[in-house]
Design a protein around this nucleic acid. Structure first.
Lengths: 341, 341
DNA sequence: ACGTTTTGCGCAATCGGTTGTTCTATGTGT
DNA sequence: ACACATAGAACAACCGATTGCGCAAAACGT
């Protein structure tokens, strides 16, 4: 007996654009136009609609809007899910910057925590079209995720650098930074420098190493004269590297991130080595691990939050099909402290 | 001259359910049923459709599906955006656990980083119905976000505890943990304990303090005899607290989180105080800050990732309208180390 | 062999918005 | 006063799925 056109019942009780149209005796079109500001609409009608919306606290259904516009109003934030990485505040600080920019654009952030080279999570999000764009949180050497994103036709930017062409990159100039730090240390008449490095799968670590080598060459030293220990992921790796440094009588140890530095400092201190008298230490400053170290550690500092801000801004330009610089380098700072006096 | 029914042109070139229906000479309904498994469908037809989908790598549009089902297939993860908080790995580890469970349910995570009591971000996500459920990453004393979520009709769980009734909570039993630690220390014949605490706006800190007080009482001590310094947010706050502890000749300092502990240790060491001979130190272990400390610090340890896992599982039970325990306590561990020998 | 149930599938409405086009009531120029 | 331009609002198709119901053919029972 019931009308045929209401035989499907849903349980939603949210206000819809049709309810508003009905209440105000106007059409859905007009309501939609009042909200979006697109199309022609009278100022008076517009006010009336907006007042109603405000009064009854109406919020458009994002999926209906998304379906009609073929947009999700979401961007993806891809960060490493490896435990060593998730302990670093770096990514959370990036996220904070992204979050602020996204909110300003009325976008939300979809999170993809991926283990190293696992693509499944990222693939799902992209193939399912759950986002309008992607920010990749750290680039890898031979990063197939970058190639994947290029092959899909989706706007994306990376935080970090990549050799893949035509990719929007936001980074600190780690090469220049490390070169500068190296030069400064060499000018202090430190002859023998050592570098203790992290995962060489990460572009950033390779870049830092290259900067280090450039610094050496620029000061007339041969790269072979410096000790380089890459891929010191575990604490014991660092300890072995430190032992080697002591044995080869290095003047100064440069640590590639502050986790390594923290491990190295501990190793030195527990071995009774006095810093900076017996050996000097410098580091990159990625987290809060060095906050309380004594003596304070000379380090290269930068602002991860700002990386996030610029990455997100660039991504939104990309989504809006505006021109974007391929590479943006953000500032870093060389903070000279007691550990290299 | 063109047909009226194609006067609107969109640029999407994705495969749709209609394309598949057309190609296989069947109806959209059948395709949909083949995918979802709901409704009646022949095994043979089903295979055919699935083979086609697999071959051409079809992925259903989540917004169309969401609109029809009134579901988003997203959950929100609300974490603090304050810089002091974002430096802790705690939240990233929770996130990791949530991420794994969400992926298993074919859900994605929407990120909301909110400054302390700022509601706007959370309100936007919830009012816009961008998620099917919410996980609140840390509870506050007098947390209006909890009340807000209760008032909206949306499934949610909190990591942490709250006095608000009928809220699904996942937490470690910080009260019991702190009580146990306190008792253990008192049994070691340490008479005068001090507590250096963090932000008393956070429920967890208040709970830890209460556990501490209970531990005192259980051992026949009066709470007034212990020194308690709450709200030591800045490094200087901690330093002043430590000075007071030394002045009042406390036997042992319990730090409410490892950032505080790190600051306290540094203050003690730089003052030439020897641990544990002159004073003992214990802490909660929230991050990696204590990883390298010497001597190793006695601490209460727990697994943030597991908090995330259980929180997410409970949220999905809630979304599926299954019964859920109101409070779930996860394990903690008392790790006795050199700092309290 | 015939009535009844089961099975497989399609029709068309629906979710809640957006938008190209059309219609009508104005405003403008001469 | 009349042709013409323009502004405001409505119509209806559309985005890409899900789903209640109806219908025909196959399977079943006696």
């Amino acid at each position: 007996m019931s009308e045929n056109n209401e035989h499907i019942m849903r349980e939603s009780n949210r206000m819809t654009i049709s309810d508003i149209a009905e209440a105000l005796h106007i059409s859905k079109t007009t309501v939609s136009r009042a909200i979006s500001g697109k199309g022609r609409i009278g100022a008076e009608t517009r006010e009336k609609v907006l007042a109603y919306i405000d009064k009854y606290n109406y919020h458009p259904n994002p999926m209906a809007r998304g379906l009609a516009q073929l947009r999700t109003y979401n961007i993806a934030w891809v960060m490493p899910g490896d435990s060593g990485m998730t302990d670093l505040p770096f990514f959370q600080r990036c996220m904070l910057g992204i979050s602020e920019v996204a909110a300003a654009h009325d976008y939300d952030i979809l999170l993809a925590m991926v283990y190293d080279r696992d693509m499944s999570q990222l693939a799902r999000i992209v193939l399912n079209h759950k986002v309008d764009g992607v920010i990749l949180g750290r680039t890898l050497v031979e990063d197939e995720r970058v190639n994947f994103l290029k092959s899909m036709d989706i706007p994306f930017v990376v935080i970090g650098s990549t050799p893949v062409p035509d990719v929007i990159q936001i980074d600190n100039d780690h090469r220049a930074a490390c070169r500068e730090l190296t030069s400064i240390l060499l000018m202090k008449d430190l002859k023998k420098l050592a570098l203790i490095g992290g995962d060489s799968n990460h572009v950033v670590n390779e870049t830092r190493k290259e900067g280090f080598l450039e610094g050496l060459r620029a000061n007339g030293l041969k790269p072979e004269e410096a000790d380089i220990y890459m891929d010191c992921k575990e604490r014991t790796d660092v300890e072995h590297a430190v032992e080697d440094c002591l044995r080869s009588q290095a003047d100064c140890i440069i640590c590639m991130d502050d986790r390594i530095c923290s491990n190295a400092l501990e190793k030195l201190k527990s071995g009774g080595i006095v810093i900076p008298e017996q050996i000097r230490v410098a580091s990159f400053y990625d987290s809060i691990l060095l906050e309380n170290s004594l003596p304070a550690v000379t380090s290269l500092r930068y602002d991860p939050r700002n990386l996030g801000v610029v990455a997100a801004k660039n991504l939104f330009r990309l989504i809006a099909e505006e021109a974007v610089e391929e590479i943006t380098y953000l500032d870093y700072e060389v903070a000279l402290k007691g550990s290299t006096q």
